[in-house]
């Protein structure tokens, strides 16, 4: 009896996270932001605005200049959660990677931690290393749970095959992340999340391969597109997916946008719509497609219609 009560209390404990937006999501793909803002209240998760947050900082900025500066910017963001006793939550793999790598460095290097706190002291802050950044997919998988997700949806994805793209910073380096796949080379979290919506989410050979986004794309778009093309063709050939679902905003942009470019150049003769998982979940919950999945380059109308109209 006692144990059961404890469990019940825990389950009732209100989940709360600081919604860490990053840059790509609020400025490039605000429909992903809107999807998050819609789905979590339904699932009983409270979101904090994390007022005053900034860029994580992303790889091309402070991490490329100086480790202390990188950690200081990351720590300021983490402080915003720590001050309220909550963790951060992001839908962007780059933010997830940068914030957690920075935290990992600070936790394992007392000198670095104190250097960072010296900088933070100038703005009246201090980071203890408590608050971390959680990934939205892990929160859904572990904290919310597949059952609750199943209960929350209005539409199921029968007869829809999904190619999942967890993205690199969802997986590696596993050492730095608060949540880890049992086998990072055969990730199952996103597949199970998709299956919870009623879809098929089979394995394909290039599932864990990089999409080619980020610095690679800004440095050499041609080379970047060869990677994404290889991946798309593999998805088409092996599982002929109806939809690509990712948990990374960068992967979302690359797979969606580069696909269209490849088609225009005559290098690709098919089209697979791409969604962030939070968008897909919002659609299944019945939210307005215009608001939660309204921004794309590769057309989504057909798949959205299939989802909504069955």
């Amino acid at each position: 009896m006692m144990e059961a009560e404890v469990v019940e209390k825990d389950a009732e404990k209100k989940l709360k996270f600081g919604l860490f937006l990053g840059c790509n999501i609020p400025f490039n793909r605000p429909d992903v932001e809107q999807a998050m803002r819609k789905i979590f209240p339904v699932l009983g998760v409270e979101l904090d605005e994390l007022k005053g947050q900034s860029c994580c900082p992303t790889w091309g900025t402070m991490p490329s200049i100086d480790i202390t500066a990188w950690c200081a910017v990351a720590a300021r963001n983490l402080c915003l959660g720590e001050e309220k006793g909550i963790d951060l939550m992001t839908a962007c793999n780059s933010c997830y990677g940068s914030l957690n790598e920075a935290r990992h460095k600070m936790l394992n290097n007392p000198k670095l931690m104190s250097d960072v706190n010296e900088l933070l002291a100038k703005i009246g802050k201090r980071y203890e290393g408590k608050a971390k950044c959680r990934h939205v997919a892990w929160v859904l998988y572990k904290d919310v749970g597949l059952e609750k997700i199943k209960e929350s949806i209005k539409y199921t994805l029968d007869d829809i095959t999904i190619a999942v793209q967890p993205g690199c910073h969802f997986l590696w380096p596993s050492e730095v992340y608060p949540d880890k796949e049992e086998d990072p080379f055969n990730p199952v979290v996103l597949r199970e999340l998709c299956e919870a919506l009623g879809a098929e989410a089979p394995y394909y050979t290039r599932l864990i391969d990089c999409c080619g986004m980020g610095a690679l794309r800004s440095t050499d778009p041609e080379k970047s597109f060869t990677l994404v093309k290889e991946k798309l063709e593999n998805i088409k050939e092996e599982i002929d997916a109806d939809l690509i679902v990712t948990t990374c905003s960068s992967c979302l942009i690359q797979l969606d946008d580069a696909q269209e470019r490849l088609r225009k150049e005559g290098k690709l003769n098919f089209s697979i719509p791409v969604l962030h998982y939070v968008q897909l979940l919002a659609l299944c919950m019945g939210f307005e497609p215009e608001q939660v999945a309204g921004i794309c380059v590769t057309p989504r109308d057909e798949i959205i219609n299939r989802i909504i109209k069955g």
Partner: peptide, 26 residues
């Protein structure tokens, strides 16, 4: 701006029903 990727166009945010600026340094 506090954002490495910064876009001045606010149309997209408005289109999806969000305030023009996110609750960030912006």
């Amino acid at each position: 701006y506090g954002h490495a990727v910064y876009m001045t166009g606010r149309e997209a945010r408005k289109k999806v029903g969000l305030p023009e600026k996110p609750p960030s340094t912006d």
